[in-house]
Design a protein around this nucleic acid. Structure first.
Lengths: 252, 252
DNA sequence: TAATTCACTTGATGCAAATCAATGCACATT
DNA sequence: AATGTGCATTGATTTGCATCAAGTGAATTA
């Protein structure tokens, strides 16, 4: 499962773009929401040195599978991924979606084996961060250590939010909450919070939210009828943000 | 919210017992499943030095509340605690139960604020571990760092299991799975895996599993009728372990 | 001893979402 | 143009669990 590539390959006349795997942490436009956050520039250089950048992965390819040896965590550079667990009776449970700047794979640390699988929802590029190097480096850089602890803790709190959503909220509330989450994560990356393309299928949405495809589809139709959204397949436009928040039943 | 006590208080003619707060990491019978795991004895001493032991907390007392400043994580020494989130509309979602040897509070790291509340289900004692000291120490002790990363990762994987349970499993499967989880955690502490007392109420069980009290009660009655269990209020005896596993729909 | 409370159980009914089934639509293949 | 395939939508029916309501038993108090 090695995705390392030679860094020296293809170095000239190459404009940075979404999938560009030559961009370094120092000049990556995601570094304010990724691991380098709060590092000094010479610390960033050291972090940069341990990071392996991969060729873009095509839609549907796996980054790792449940049970694989755990070696690295991954930062999404472009595209979107989903993480999912397979139940004993063979069904899938999507446990998270990962957008550019976000880190996945931390669930593998506990048993040195990936506890979930991760695959791309569209063409995507990732930075591979060997965990043993990251651990060594974070023992030397308090800021890095703190940031990584925070990232793991963030994963825990995100999971708890999902637990609550699944346990306490209606289909309408779940779908509205997911749309708001995606909207907020787009805003963090300076993209539109009201007009975006869902990178995942209805099946994945339903799977993540504990609903069937049909229910997801019905909720979206209803939201469109209520003029909260304009839905065109994967293209979503939020027309009435307070209305959506109200449907999600959240305070903020 | 300080629960520190003077270590020198009450030091003589004191036999160690479940709630004894004088026991140190080095001679704590839980140290094989708690933080000290895999530390050398002089490292254990250093860890021991930063740990604050508290008087036992009475049933229903809070260790921390959602929104409190995050200072420490806690190891359960005796008793049981629950962690829960409060939803925007004021309802509770229990996110976990914590038995002796287990660590809670790690969800506070990400925002420096506790993301959930924790209260005791019965008289309990905890060890308070100031996080800043733990972070400093773990930068110096690779084994401690690794172990703490693993604990956090474990929290993530446990949450993912709960997510899957809530999203994909029936009421029967959820209740059976919780019983198996408690059974396994008892076994880890060398207690009976087949005969134990549930420390939490039916309300808490239902809340944790996304079910109403009535449903929990019915499932337990059904399991008794099927002769999988013997239920006497909180006292549980598992009569047919393969049967319970079968009901939970899990492989192991 | 009776009364109050609390945690739990049991039964009857209703509803939200699953399931089953059909159809529509975009896009690729031939 | 015809055919297939994957994804999304919509409608009809079923069902598992919530809800509502009442009842039990043990512990606590009067």
């Amino acid at each position: 499962m090695s995705i390392y590539i030679s860094k020296s390959a293809q170095d000239d006349g190459f404009k940075p773009c979404a999938h560009d795997y030559q961009v370094h942490c120092g000049n990556c436009r995601l570094n304010s929401i990724c691991l380098p956050l709060s590092l000094e520039s010479d610390d960033i250089q050291q972090l940069d040195d341990i990071i392996q950048r991969s060729k873009p992965l095509k839609k549907g390819q796996h980054l790792y599978r449940e049970g694989d040896d755990f070696q690295s965590v991954y930062a999404v550079r472009s595209g979107t991924l989903k993480a999912y667990k397979t139940t004993d009776d063979g069904r899938e449970q999507v446990t998270g979606f990962y957008f550019p700047g976000e880190i996945l794979g931390m669930d593998g640390i506990s048993k040195n084996t990936h506890a979930s699988s991760a695959s791309t929802l569209e063409t995507s590029a990732v930075c591979e961060i060997p965990f043993s190097s990251l651990a060594k480096l974070s023992a030397l850089m308090p800021n890095l250590q703190r940031h990584f602890f925070q990232l793991m803790s963030r994963e825990i709190t995100d999971d708890q939010v999902l637990i609550t959503l699944l346990s306490k909220n209606s289909a309408d509330e779940r779908v509205a909450a997911l749309l708001l989450s995606i909207s907020a994560r787009n805003a963090r990356r300076k993209l539109s919070s009201t007009h975006f393309r869902l990178p995942m299928s209805r099946v994945d949405i339903g799977n993540y939210l504990g609903l069937t495809v049909e229910t997801v589809s019905r909720v979206l139709s209803r939201m469109q009828k209520m003029e909260l959204l304009c839905v065109d397949n994967k293209e979503i436009e939020i027309l009435d943000m307070p209305g959506v928040r109200n449907m999600a039943n959240v305070a903020s």
